[in-house]
Design a protein around this nucleic acid. Structure first.
Lengths: 125, 125
DNA sequence: CGGCATCCCATCAGATACTG
DNA sequence: CAGTATCTGATGGGATGCCG
């Protein structure tokens, strides 16, 4: 990634870019949110909670979150195997900020969707 | 998009998915942040602030934010033309939440990067 | 200056098949 | 159950050229 220290010292540009690089994907934030609300979850429980994620993307995203230290992965060597995912303290510390964002979205999403519709109208009509 | 009302009633899954759909891209949040800090900006000023965005992506992202009603676009019919972008009230209302997230990132990014390095080590070594 | 249109390629992500 | 491996189509995003 580009070193942003030279071009943008006056605001938190860098931090934001780091967030977006890590959590700007389709599933990371959602998984953190689910684990925050429902606690410890197995692979297929997450799969069902999300509903429309592919097994591949769930695996990839969980690995990524685990690498970041945001979630923990516990494997029980049983037959059939069982794996439980849970937020770490670091992951839990991120949760409130996601919640605030989700609240904002819940409050303003109707407005945004209306704006979008109006904007599309103004282009076609 | 999938209607999530059936599968996930117990948490704010839906709101979060909406946010991620709208702002999960590489540039939207960054542009909102810059406009929040620096105020009204021209196209090429934004281009320079960001540094490594292509003209195409800047245009696309600005249009998207304008459609959402998060920024306003004011065209001055001069020669050469001048265009100024600015946060709307709606855009400004989102700003604090982004700031909180940026602060969290600033505080914990070192930790996350270290976790990543350790995780990569544990896989190769 | 501030775009839009086109081409093109790298990465993302789904489907499928296989495994411990 | 919880993955991995591979193939392939979809998407993102850069480079270039043209326009008001």
């Amino acid at each position: 990634m580009k070193n942003c220290s030279e071009k943008n010292k006056e605001h938190s540009n860098c931090s934001i870019r780091h967030i977006l690089d890590r959590f700007g994907d389709k599933w990371s934030i959602l998984i953190i949110s689910i684990l925050g609300h429902l606690g410890k979850q197995r692979f297929n429980e997450l799969n069902q909670q999300i509903g429309d994620i592919s097994q591949k993307m769930l695996t990839v995203t969980l690995r990524s979150l685990e690498a970041d230290g945001l979630i923990s992965r516990k494997l029980y060597p049983e037959i059939p195997p069982r794996v439980e995912y849970e937020l770490t303290d670091l992951g839990r510390s991120l949760l409130p900020h996601i919640e605030r964002l989700a609240e904002w979205a819940a409050q303003h999403m109707d407005c945004i969707l209306k704006n979008r519709a109006d904007y599309a109208q103004s282009k076609t009509g």
